[in-house]
Write a protein that binds this DNA or RNA. Structure first.
Lengths: 344, 344
DNA sequence: AGATCAAATTGAATCGTTTTACATCCTGAG
DNA sequence: CTCAGGATGTAAAACGATTCAATTTGATCT
């Protein structure tokens, strides 16, 4: 309960507070004997530096904050992991906050971070368009990096993954497998990711087969099942032989419905998802999926942030765009290479 | 860039710093005209309180920390959500940290939290046994609440869910369904949750059928599939007609393998999982599962913490144990009530 | 011994708030 | 007209660390 300060340590060690501080921050400037004495008093009293005082003096903290859109989504926990790794390498701490897609909560968090004088903020904002609060942080010298929200803005750095390319990869793959009747399952198109993936997908098939669109109202397994049922009930001759889904949840729903209706995957129907969530590999028929380098995303974002923190004047804002890649598994393999590919 | 302080505001408003502080903290003690003037200067200059200074003065922050064992696990994100709700109600902030089951990382986080003088800590420690660092926090007046780690210790509060009871619920349920050959899939037993669930399960069946044990080396879908294969390949006459799995991932693996081997669920085989993860309801055959009140866990933990913070002297440490409940879905329903029960 | 210089240590100022004891002003009661 | 006492407002002292100019100490060289 008695919180012990540097002054008390100094007194007990028979030195001045300045010396104690030096032991902590510039150990090489203090004589070895003194250093040892001070250190032993420190452990004896259980002294712990008061970071508030430290930060007050320094003018800023040693912490960056990540404000995630939805921590229940594994995408963000992976990004977080990457951020933690990069932060550790840079000698700073990461504090995680969760906006839960709630503007008010996001606002509260940002205000608080401003008051805390954090080093910088990594954020996937709820609202892509109105970022006044972020601008205010930047004005006050707190750099902000956007994650997975590539507003081409030149005001700040951003990291993102190329969703158009992701769609293209899926399209090329299915085309190479010789499919002619192909469908896209996904929606709503107001979500940039969805429309980008669709755009890339159709582009890859532009001189080939038409893409039939099955629009969904959200990105859940249930929605996938609904679409899957519609598809499975089509007469076999008109039914697509391949489906690309805007995310893995949809794909899993479609897959289940195919199984239920006796449509064999991949023989009668190839399926490709997006995100490569953990369950993709663990599905009844392991699911092909477009993988995003999520951890890298977090690492890169943090590195950009620290760069800006450390060289504010020479820093130029950059927009890093990563390439996703396609993980082919049984659900879309022409020849079922089966267990060999059943990775994790 | 020019970070503006209370002094500047005071100067521009033609008052003393004390008055500005009062406007912020005791608005009713300052004349309405002055208050307005000060407030307008504040917004004009974009002044933001420096929390470091505030905390230094106050001796503590207005933040509680939650150190999660593994944020990639939805269990903890739900607990987190509960904690956030309760914290908000109590007027404090929550900072989330992730130890990722890594002792070193946990240690670093705890040290940092000590330095930050947080109000209190919610934690699921990596190591159940050695909590010296937690003791040190407590000694220094920072209360700690254990989450899902019910060390009967009288040193601190804890919240947990009764896993023995959870196992019992599953056992009773399967017994009521008239099953005679019953199996338990799970492991390793060094994990308390696993052994508790097993204990409760066998207890519920003690005067009835024997429980055949299929031990796994971890709690993944892959492990579940392995066990499922073994089970499915038993001659139908000796094969269990019901399986209780130590968690949902195992259950999903078992379910897949049954489907593959043409064993109909639930007709030939009932399956019950544990955790009620989001995918449980979305599985090909919606999965019965034992649900833990995870959000409540977080809420309760935070409330205990805040209680201890606010009344340190009168506070008595408590151990709150929640009751899980069984969600019956198709995978274990005698009569398939089908779509009616397909709720998310 | 005295001068010189590097190494070690000190003391005070500083960061931005909050708080407390005190001063000032004003109003209305006596 | 005076005075008590409530409203307002102020100045200065904390809070705990870091830093920097100044000082002391001690060793080395002549």
């Amino acid at each position: 309960m008695a919180t012990v300060s540097i002054k008390e340590v100094a007194h007990r060690a028979g030195v001045s507070v300045g010396t104690v501080s030096n032991v902590l921050n510039h150990p090489d400037t203090v004589a070895i004997a003194t250093r040892r004495r001070v250190l032993s008093v420190i452990t004896e009293l259980g002294y712990v530096r008061n970071d508030s005082a430290r930060q007050l003096r320094a003018g800023r903290s040693q912490t960056v904050a990540m404000v995630a859109l939805d921590l229940a989504n594994p995408f963000f926990t992976d990004v977080m992991r990457g951020a933690e790794i990069a932060a550790e390498a840079g000698g700073v701490n990461v504090m995680i906050f969760n906006s839960g897609e709630d503007t008010a909560r996001e606002r509260r968090h940002l205000d608080m971070l401003g008051g805390q004088r954090v080093l910088g903020v990594l954020i996937t904002p709820v609202d892509e368009t109105n970022n006044a609060r972020l601008d205010r942080l930047v004005e006050r010298g707190i750099p902000v990096v956007l994650v997975d929200r590539g507003s081409g803005s030149h005001e700040r750095c951003s990291v993102a993954v190329d969703d158009v390319l992701g769609g293209q990869l899926a399209g090329q793959h299915l085309r190479e497998q010789g499919h002619h009747r192909i469908a896209f399952v996904g929606g709503p198109f107001s979500i940039r990711q969805v429309s980008d993936r669709h755009t890339g997908f159709t582009a890859a098939l532009n001189d080939g087969p038409d893409v039939r669109l099955f629009s969904t109202s959200n990105l859940t397994v249930a929605a996938g099942r609904e679409a899957g049922q519609t598809i499975a009930e089509l007469p076999a001759a008109k039914r697509p032989t391949a489906v690309f889904c805007a995310n893995d949840l949809l794909a899993l729903g479609v897959l289940q419905e195919m199984t239920t209706h006796g449509v064999s995957v991949p023989r009668d129907m190839a399926i490709v998802g997006y995100d490569d969530i953990e369950f993709a590999a663990a599905a009844a028929v392991p699911l092909s999926s477009v993988r995003q380098p999520r951890e890298q995303l977090g690492r890169a974002a943090t590195q950009l942030l620290l760069e800006e923190v450390n060289e504010p004047q020479s820093h130029e804002h950059r927009h890093v765009v990563f390439r996703p890649d396609l993980v082919v598994r049984e659900s879309s393999a022409t020849k079922v290479t089966a267990s060999a590919k059943r990775g994790k």
